[in-house]
Each structure stands twice: as C-alpha cells, then as structure tokens.
C-alpha cells in the first residue's frame, strides 16, 4: 500500500540553535535532541538549523457534569507554537502548532488519585508534543550555508 520505513538516514543536521526556552517542555526537548545526536549551540552562526519556541499554552476545562452539577469529566489542552529557520534562508518559516488533548473522568471522592492521573496525562501530553516536534525536526533537510558566517 505504498508505506515505507521513514528516513533511513539519521537526522541531517548536527547543530541546533534553540530560542525561547522558558517553556515547560524545554528540558525534555533538549534531552531528546542530545540523545538523537544533535548539539545545542549558543549562537545562530554556528547552527545548521534554528528552532524558536514562540509560546505554549495549557488549559483545563470542565467537560461534563452529573445531573447534580458535579464534575464528571475534565479536559486538558496543551499547545506549543514554534517556527524553524534554515540558515541558508533569510526568513523564518511559518509558525507551526502542535497541540494535544486529553480527557479523564473525575470523582470528588478520589481527589488525590485524580490529581495524580491529571499530572500523568499532562506529562504524557507534553512528551507527545516533544515527540511530534522531534518528528518535525527530523525530516528537516537544511541546505548548507551559502556564505560563510560574517566575521
């Protein structure tokens, strides 16, 4: 049916410049990059690829109520916005979004356990976002720099 194993080659870049690190997934993203053999460089000039995390947002909403107005389900939403720049390009790419959604049943008589479940789903949702972001990065094939960096 036409499916093929993805990119038999390794990630095509070695040095990444990461901008906007004040987000909850920054640490996991850095770890994931390092374990995939990508080094984080301190200046854009040294980078083969640039990634900017623009923003993130998280939200918790009541999803459904019982007939007596008790919460029966909550919904969690997480969204991270980012953009990528190839050093051979003058401009940043279009902003892209990765979003995740989870829901879980809720019971006031199991409050602490449900808090634990919520934390687990939040972690899982963020881990998913990192995985998806790595997916987006791993298919990047940045062109080599056309001009050497300005001295």
């Amino acid at each position: 049916c036409g499916f093929q194993l993805r990119g038999v080659n390794d990630i095509a870049f070695k040095n990444l410049y990461l901008q906007g690190q004040n987000v909850s997934i920054a640490r996991d993203l850095k770890r994931s990059l390092l374990s995939n053999g990508v080094a984080l460089v301190p200046t854009p000039e040294q980078a083969d690829l640039m990634l900017e995390i623009l923003s993130e947002s998280a939200e918790k909403r009541i999803l459904s109520l019982s007939g007596t107005g008790r919460v029966r389900e909550f919904e969690l939403n997480y969204q991270v916005n980012f953009r990528i720049k190839d050093p051979s390009n003058e401009l940043w790419g279009m902003p892209q979004t990765i979003s995740g959604r989870r829901d879980f049943t809720f019971d006031d008589s199991q409050l602490l356990a449900k808090q634990g479940e919520e934390a687990r789903l939040n972690d899982d949702m963020r881990a998913d976002a990192v995985r998806e972001l790595m997916h987006v990065l791993s298919v990047q094939r940045p062109k080599p720099r056309t001009k050497p960096p300005v001295e």
Binding site: R102, F104, T105, D107, Q110, L112, A113, K114, Q115, G116, E117, R120, L121, D124, M125
Partner: peptide
C-alpha cells in the same frame, strides 16, 4: 491514600 484506577485510554495503555 492517593490511589485509584486510571481511565483506560491511549495514554494509559502505555503505563
């Protein structure tokens, strides 16, 4: 103390 069965979903299948 703080334990319950988690909902079964595509997250908890991998716990």
């Amino acid at each position: 103390f703080d334990t319950a069965l988690a909902d079964l979903n595509t997250s908890s299948l991998f716990q």
